[in-house]
Computed example of a mutant assay.
Amino acid sequence: MKAAVLYEVNKPLVIEEVSVNKPGPREVLIRTKVAGLCHSDLHFMEGLYPWPLPTIPGHESSGIVEQVGSDVTYVQPGDHVVTCLSVFCGTCDMCTTGRPVLCTGTDVKLLPGVANRFNWNKPEKLNQFINLSSFAEQMLVHENAVVKIRKDMPLDLAALIGCGVITGYGAVVNTAKVRPGESVAVIGCGGVGMAAINGAAIAGAGRIIAVDTNPVKLQLATKLGATDLVNPNDGDPVKQVKDKTGGLGVEHAFEVLGAKITAEQAFGMLAPGGTATIVGMIPFGTKIELHGADFLRERRIQGSSMGSNHFRQDMPRLVEFYLNGKLHLDDWVSARIKLSEINEGFANMKAGKTVRSIIEFN
C-alpha cells in the first residue's frame, strides 16, 4: 500500500510503498477511504510534540472494514467506521469511572514506538502514529479505536467527526457543559473552532462570539451559529469581547489555536464565575501566565482532550445531527486532494487558506 511517511521533522512527507500486517487478536484491518489534515498532525510534523520517527502520520479518518482478527466482536467486514485516536481499554480506572478519553490501558492504547504493525524494505522500524496512521491506504487498529456508523452517512464527511468535530463539539458539550442561554467565545475558527461554534449553537448558547483574523472564516462562523464576530486585527480581542457583553465578559471561552497568548486571552475575557477551556495543543514546554487575583472571582481554566468524548456514543449522535441538518459538515471541507498532494495540503493549512482539507483514497 501507499503511505505518507515522516522521516524528519520540518521535512516534507514522502510517499512510500509499505505493507501492513494481518489482523491479530482484537485487531481490525480497514481500507482507508478518507483522511483529514489536522493541525495536530502538523504539531508533530514540526517537532512541537515528540514522536518516534519514521512514522506515518494521520488520525482523522473513515473507512470500510476489510478483515477482523480473532476475538473481534464489535465489527465485521463491510462495516463503515470512523477512527478515533482515544482508543480505550474499558477496564482501567479512567474507563470504568466514565472517562475513557483518558484511558491508561497501555495494552490497548499502545505507547509511542510500541506498535509493530508495518513492514517495509528499510532497516529502521516504521512507527504507527497514535495507534492509527491514517495517511495510508490501509489501517490496522484495535477494535476499540473505531466506531460503526450508518452506511448512508457520507464517508468523506464522517472522517471529520473522528477528530476535529468531536474535539470542538465535545469541548463545548462534554467538557464545559455549556447550558442553554449561556455566552460563549471561541478563539480560532479553523475546523475545531467551527465545530465548537456549531456545538455551542446545538447546545443552545445564547451568545456565540467567534474570534479570528480571517474575515472569510468569520463569515462562515456566522453560518454555523456565531452571533458576533471579533477580529483581533481591529484591536485587543479581550476588550472587544467585553465591550460586546456590556463589560462583563463571557461565561465560557474556548481557546482552539494552541498558543500562549490566546490561552491567556481566553481567561482574560471571562465573566466572574466563567470557565476557559483550552482545546488547542499548546507547544510542549510552553507555560501560560495568568493574574492570580482573577481567580478571586471564581474564574476557572481547564483542558479538554478530544472533547472529553465517549466516542461510541458521541460519534453516532454527530452523524444524526448531520443527517438532521444541525451539524454543517459540508461547510468544513475546503479542498479534496490525493495522497500525493499531501504536502501542498499542509502548506495551505499553515497559510490559513483552508478550514479542512481531506485526502480521498481510491
Rank of each mutant, 00 (worst) to 15 (best):
S86C: 08
A200V: 13
E182R: 13
L37E: 15
C92R: 04
D314P: 15
P283N: 09
T167W: 01
L157F: 02
H142Q: 00
Q265C: 12
S305E: 07
G274Y: 06
K244E: 02
H310E: 03
T354H: 12
V172M: 05
F118T: 00
F267T: 13
V75P: 02
M153G: 06
V147T: 13
M194F: 09
Q302W: 12
S357I: 13
N198K: 09
K353H: 04
P123E: 05
I187S: 14
P123W: 01
M315L: 15
R300W: 04
E27V: 10
T32Y: 00
F346S: 07
T354I: 14
P272T: 09
M194H: 11
V9H: 05
A263L: 13
K22P: 07
N214E: 05
R299C: 02
F361C: 04
I149R: 05
D236W: 06
L85Q: 05
L224I: 12
F267W: 10
M94E: 03
T213G: 03
P215R: 12
F118K: 02
T275R: 09
V72C: 11
E60Y: 09
F311G: 00
V250A: 09
A226C: 07
Y49R: 08
I15N: 03
T32D: 01
F361V: 03
E289S: 11
R300T: 07
T222K: 10
Q138C: 11
K33Q: 14
D107Y: 11
V14I: 10
C189S: 06
N348T: 05
E344K: 06
T286I: 13
H80S: 11
V186P: 10
L229A: 08
G98N: 01
A3Y: 12
V34M: 06
M139T: 14
G47K: 08
G274T: 11
V241E: 03
A35E: 00
A205S: 10
K33Y: 10
D234C: 07
A271I: 09
E17K: 04
G168R: 07
G181N: 07
G36Y: 03
W332P: 04
E16A: 08
S61L: 08
M306S: 13
A158R: 01
S305D: 06
G36V: 01
P23N: 13
G325C: 02
P25D: 14
L220V: 02
R312H: 13
V146P: 02
W120K: 00
G162R: 01
V192K: 00
G162Q: 00
K151A: 07
M194Y: 05
I208F: 04
L110M: 14
L140F: 14
K242H: 15
